[in-house]
Structure formats: structure tokens, C-alpha cells
């Protein structure tokens, strides 16, 4: 026999498959194979439902079988409304996926946000599922930053950042937006009031320096370091007749 083709196929170029997941599950009938072979779980021993009880009195037969757990005496007549269960759980417990092409040290191309078009180095995935990324700041002005992986192109280029240590405080809470205070109308004069302006905190500057130092060292260790420096500093762009869906990154 030749190579067996997959039974499921795409309808046109629509991205929709002919058979749904459930139908393929039925068709493939893997569950049947599992039943035949595989390790069979031994059924758990049920605790005895009934118990023999000595009964006193002459005409009571001596013993009687009595239920261990008695059924409730009364049942509710009306159904109580219940909350539906959420299988996924809350956001913090969601399963995080990372594209296989993205590994620590991968050079990514940012596609959205104010740093779009820049090539940055991926450091690690945070608990929220967002990617921690740095320019390094000195090369292209992209600081330590969180990015969603859907707004990113993963390239084949990688920097060996196995020796890098990222400060523990750099987590999701670290990147939360700070609420800036607005001036109240009642106090003081209108024109003297100042809005609180966002400024980069000292700890961020410090972390940026420490992380970037080690990242830059890692880049220096790359065999084509000179070009890599230029590469990370340059913006990504498309020329004529370059179709991103047909390109390899």
C-alpha cells in the first residue's frame, strides 16, 4: 500500500475543514483501540452499601440488612438555579501557549504598538502569557516591554541568552500601568495646578541597564556580531514583490 492520505481535508482555501473534530474522532475511532489494549484500570472497591444489623426481639428474624448511608428523607420539589461551571477557570489559570518558533533569545519583529517594525530579543514568557522583550534599548530604543505573541514575527535568528539573569521583580505587576493623579478643581488656582506626568522609574532604568548589559554581551558572542548589531538596529520593511506570507523569517 502507498502512503495513506489524511481523510480530512480543507474546503477550498477557506481554512475550514470538511469534517469537524468530533466527526473525525468518530471516524478514527481511536477510543476503541484504547479499550482493546492499554492499561486497564482496576475498578475501585466500593465500600459496602449494606450492613448486617442484629435486631432484637423474637419475631424479627435476628438480623436485617440495613443501608450504611441512608437516603435523604425528603427531596426538593423545585429545581434550584445553579451557576454553570467554567471549564477554563479564571484567566490566571489559563493554559499558556508559546509558539514553538519562539524560544528565549529569538529575534522577533514587532508588528504593533509604538515600536512596530523593530527587531527585538525575546527574553521569556511571563505568567500572563505575554512575552518579555528588550531591544536592547541602546540599539533600537525598545525598552524592557511586554508584547502579545500574535503581534510578533519570529525569525530564525537566535542569540544565546542562557547565561542571562532577569531580576525577579520584572513580572506582570511590574509593568502594570500606574494611575496618574488628576488635579481636583477645588484646590488652588487653575493654572498653577500640574498634572502628574509619567516618568520612567529608577528601578526600571536600573533593570534595563542590567538586562541589556548581559544581552549585549550575548550578542557580542554571536559569530556575526557586527552584522547582528546592525540588524537589531535596523527597522524591518517590505520592498516591492515581497509577500510576507511567502517569506521565511
Amino acid at each position: 500500500m502507498g502512503i495513506t492520505r489524511p481523510r480530512n481535508y480543507e474546503l477550498g482555501n477557506s481554512g475550514v475543514m470538511r469534517f469537524s473534530a468530533t466527526r473525525m474522532y468518530r471516524k478514527r475511532a481511536v477510543y476503541r483501540l484504547k479499550k482493546k489494549g492499554g492499561d486497564k484500570k482496576q475498578p475501585e472497591k466500593k465500600s459496602a452499601e449494606v450492613k448486617k444489623k442484629q435486631i432484637g426481639g423474637d419475631k424479627n428474624g435476628g438480623t436485617r440488612l440495613v443501608r450504611v448511608n441512608r437516603p435523604p428523607k425528603s427531596y426538593q420539589t423545585a429545581e434550584v438555579s445553579r451557576k454553570l461551571k467554567n471549564k477554563k477557570g479564571c484567566f490566571s489559570k489559563h493554559k499558556r501557549n508559546l509558539r514553538t518558533t519562539i524560544t528565549p533569545g529569538t529575534v522577533l519583529i514587532l508588528l504593533a504598538g509604538r515600536h512596530k517594525g523593530k527587531r527585538v530579543v525575546f527574553l521569556k514568557q511571563l505568567n500572563s502569557g505575554l512575552l518579555l522583550v528588550t531591544g536592547p534599548f541602546r540599539l533600537n530604543g525598545c525598552p524592557l516591554r511586554r508584547v502579545n505573541q500574535i503581534y510578533v514575527i519570529a525569525t530564525k535568528t537566535k542569540v544565546d541568552i542562557s547565561k542571562i539573569s532577569i531580576p525577579d521583580r520584572v513580572n506582570d505587576a511590574y509593568f502594570r500601568r500606574k494611575v496618574l493623579k488628576k488635579p481636583k478643581h477645588a484646590e488652588g488656582e487653575i493654572f498653577e495646578q500640574k498634572k502628574e506626568v509619567y516618568s520612567v522609574s529608577d528601578e526600571r532604568k536600573e533593570d534595563q541597564l542590567t538586562v541589556d548589559k548581559s544581552v549585549l554581551e550575548a550578542i557580542r558572542a554571536h559569530p556575526e556580531k557586527k552584522l547582528l548589531f546592525g540588524y537589531l538596529g535596523a527597522m524591518f520593511s517590505l520592498n516591492n514583490r515581497q509577500y510576507p506570507h511567502k517569506m521565511i523569517f
Binding site: I153, T155, T157, Y231, I248
Partner: peptide, 10 residues
């Protein structure tokens, strides 16, 4: 066609 992004830059 098989050039990577870095190769194209080079």
C-alpha cells in the same frame, strides 16, 4: 526564497 530575515539583511 529560503533566505531568512537576517540573511536578507546581510
Amino acid at each position: 526564497e529560503n533566505l531568512s530575515d537576517f540573511d536578507r539583511f546581510k
